[in-house]
Amino acid sequence: MKRLFSAVLAAFLSAATSAQAADITLLNVSYDPTRELYKAINAAFASDWKAKHGDNVTINQSHGGSGAQSRAVTDGLDADVVTLALAYDIDAISAKGLIAKNWQTRLPDNATPYTSTIVFLVRKGNPWKIKDWPDLVKPGVQVITPNPKTSGGARWSFLAAWAYALKAPGGNADKARAFVQALYRHVPVLDTGARGSTTTFAQRGIGDVLLSWENEAHLALKEQGGDQFQIVYPPASILAEPPVSVVDKNVDRHNTRSVSEAYLSFLYTKQAQEIEAANFYRPRDAAVLASHAADFPRITLYNFAEIFGDWQKAQATYFADKGVFDQIYKPGQ
């Protein structure tokens, strides 16, 4: 139906304007929670491009766990752009030759047009009085978080917890490890994606606190009932940077490079930044961020690069086979 409509529209407009209006289709392979965001962004970009160039742009979306999507693209999912949860997942695609090695420097701010962080979603009234990270390991508290092996957000949560314990007074790597280990002992179910965890917590009534993306938490309040849950911001959390990139091999094959690059640049424009803020992603644009200050409390945000170095190391140390996460789950815990 969409294609038919586009075709008819294109025919009509090419009669109305004298320019040759093309039909362009892009595929944006994204991570789990961004469905609502990109619905809005895609509509805005399509009309923006239409106004500037007269072409009809249709952007198809695919959503899933960041790691799973990365794997799908390397297996041949024909993405024009990828908008994933963490740099490692795009690095993995780059390692297979589909994306240029300098992808992260091609766009401003480490190719991250918006950021996010990890917050706590608790039941209304905060019965367990969760205020900060140590409260998560209080006896009896059940924490919901997805599986770091499949979910990008879960990896950020893991690292946020680690960073907290590391940076706490008297903190060191061993203490961090012990804290994270204790934390995961409080997790009764590991969903494969951020959305699955939110469903488990909000819909199924499992758990006392959900570790989630900031935008997910706000969305859950909106969709699931603000009268049932509330968001708790810990004093410190991690700055999560979900990056974006064109998939060079694919856009060159499809001849969609200019549109794809424009699409990603569009994410940095005021208009798009407003949409991102409205969907509870922290915009890079300082002015937009300031105007939405009420939605984005200022908390200490740990810098990933400072604490963990680069993603290759972090992935190998914590999340790869036999890494720290696997060791935590050694049976006989």
């Binding site: 990365s70 092996k149 590991l190 789950y329």
Partner: peptide, 30 residues
Amino acid sequence: VIFIAGNLPGISEIAPLLIIIKLNENDVAG
């Protein structure tokens, strides 16, 4: 099963899910 299993490694994680997890870690051989 996937909607009702807990997916906790070593406790309620079924083998087909583990296959998918390994796939997504790029451990195709595993």
